[in-house]
Design a protein around this nucleic acid. Structure first.
Lengths: 340, 340
DNA sequence: TATCAAACTTGATACGTTTCATTTAGCGCC
DNA sequence: GGCGCTAAATGAAACGTATCAAGTTTGATA
């Protein structure tokens, strides 16, 4: 069975308190004693009991990570960033998929509260931060992930989605495109809404215009369907900007099936720059988000609050996206320009 | 601050023990009393302290999930299965990416031991199960994930990789292919080795032969490189079977770039049937593994052992893979048959 | 040699639960 | 009305640790 500090104390002929000090306040104990204790620890293969420790010290090296769906490559990468930062600090991450459902999110928040986690990283399923209020009141550090903090009492780490939308638009405009389609997702996703704002304002600024298309979900299947039905209605355009890469990949299938060539007939621009974007049959031009860094930064924020809540100042960290041009986009073709 | 059972007891005018009984042994307490206690619980918004509970009862509703890389779509899906099963049982999952490195795996196992998790689901980074010995000795339930249990003291959930390899081979053979290339991954991955065994024996049984190609890693980039160099050496074949879908997608890029058409010139068969396989430009024929079910089953195994270690019998669960034919494979073309 | 601060150690207490041996109440029956 | 039972509730002990006031040793100083 696992041995306890008491066993260590006995074997090293010191008191329980001294063993505790060796572990938590080594500067208070004489080197010779510390050495003896360490020997005993090795001998007994003692491993501290984290739950007991937390019960007493009210400090847990456990984080909760609440995301809509880890199967989304964007969040997978974010999670890796979170996890690496956590492990570096001796923390551990509880993975919670909310499926963007409030009910499931609530269930998880309750479990996390019961587990008395030290901090929570969350991409909320809904606008209101009310459900987080309880947690905050109980001294749990909360950091918003891929969301900007509206309030003062939480940290946040996000990517500038308006800028990302603008980058995508400007790329298309720079290539000479004037007939642009924006393939959006569900309207209630704040990130998507921001991308749209950035895109629209850039386009308007250039005196061009955009047609808006909406997919039901942020998936390839949904992108394919939306594009297909638009094509059947004889939509006329030369560039397609999508709310994420999955939509773009789906749309490309529909376009290809309709006999359109990419990028010769249509330029396609995605968003997220997931790994598959680069290695697709037609490498996808996309707006890269520093996903790993986002997760890493968010985790460091929440950990720093866990470690020292008193002297912690809430921060907003915002990353800049970046356009990665690949083969799915090219200058508008001569014929299209003339036709216009 | 969070209220404790003591507060609840006071408010409901009962003893501490009674509150505990309401929570854990409701059959022992009179309905009227239970009602009073429940009212107090709601009133105080009491949420049990899981760590304290575990300290006393030595029973944790926490699982550790140790996988090589959650960014691999295979494991992402497995993780979802694990998580859903866990949440259903009121458990929570700690995510651990070992990166297939022994050192990182060890670090995580130590942290999980310190957290006193109730169970561990692991796809081990190395053959030896020694590092798990300590855990088992301390009463932690261990279940092998995507690995078959060699020993008697752990459960395991896996997919029949030999059969999968055979399915892929038989599909190619049925389509008339006789010049087959097997694009393998690193030799030390047991799953891949098994697939190869199944493939080889099916091919031999049919009196055909296989050329073996090895990629350095199980990634698109690696698959592309391996295929490219093979093509430059003038390899002659009509069907390509890959150790996983990522390799297949990479290989397809190299093939396409070399002017070969799929499936007209070369039939390509992947393994895993990740989501992208179906929605790629050329939908990929692949061997489907019940990924979600695998994770779900493994989690249920480990949870059942956690709940009642005494009456638990270790089990091996093995799933059957399934061939999903799509457009990347077709009957060998007349010209190729003649040429032979 | 007596004194005192500094450097270590100790031992008791509390964290929020579960468990279990006891106690108390309620009730039918001879 | 006393007996034995069952059902319900209680109270104390324990889980493994951190903390901190109080104790002990050490070594330097006067």
């Amino acid at each position: 069975m696992g041995s306890s500090m008491k066993d260590v104390a006995t074997l090293a002929s010191v008191s329980l308190g001294t063993v505790s000090n060796v572990l938590n306040h080594p500067e208070l104990v004489a080197p010779a004693t510390a050495a003896r204790v360490h020997r005993a620890i090795r001998e007994l293969e003692f491993i501290p009991n984290a739950p007991a420790r937390q019960l007493r010290s009210r400090h847990a090296r456990v984080l909760g990570l609440v995301v809509p769906d880890i199967a989304n490559p964007f969040f997978t990468e974010v999670a890796r960033g979170v996890e690496d930062a956590a492990l570096d600090a001796g923390y551990v991450v509880i993975l919670c998929n909310s499926d963007a459902q409030a009910e499931r999110e609530d269930r998880y928040l309750a479990v996390l509260e019961s587990q008395r986690v030290g901090g929570i990283l969350i991409t909320p399923a809904r606008k209101s931060l009310k459900p987080l209020g309880r947690l905050l009141g109980n001294g749990v550090a909360v950091t918003l992930l891929d969301n900007d903090a509206p309030a003062q009492d939480v940290c946040s780490a996000s990517v500038d989605d308006r800028m990302g939308g603008a980058l995508a638009a400007e790329h298309a405009l720079d290539l000479g495109h004037r007939k642009i389609v924006w393939l959006a997702g569900p309207a209630d996703i704040p990130q998507v809404a921001d991308r749209e704002l950035g895109l629209m304002s850039a386009v308007r600024h250039a005196g061009a215009s955009v047609q808006r298309l909406a997919a039901k979900q942020m998936t390839t299947a949904s992108g394919e369907m939306a594009m297909e039905s638009a094509l059947s209605q004889g939509i006329d355009f030369t560039a397609l900007v999508c709310a994420n890469d999955l939509l773009a990949l789906g749309a490309i299938r529909a376009l290809t099936r309709a006999g359109l060539r990419i990028p010769d007939d249509i330029s396609v621009i995605g968003y997220d720059d997931i790994e598959f974007a680069a290695s697709a049959a037609i490498p996808l031009t996309s707006v890269r988000q520093p996903k790993y860094e986002l997760g890493h930064a968010a985790a460091k924020l929440v950990i720093s609050e866990c470690e020292d809540p008193a002297s912690h100042a809430h921060q907003r960290v915002q990353f800049q996206p970046q356009l990665v041009a690949r083969q799915s986009s090219s200058p508008v073709s001569a014929s299209d320009t003339l036709r216009r």
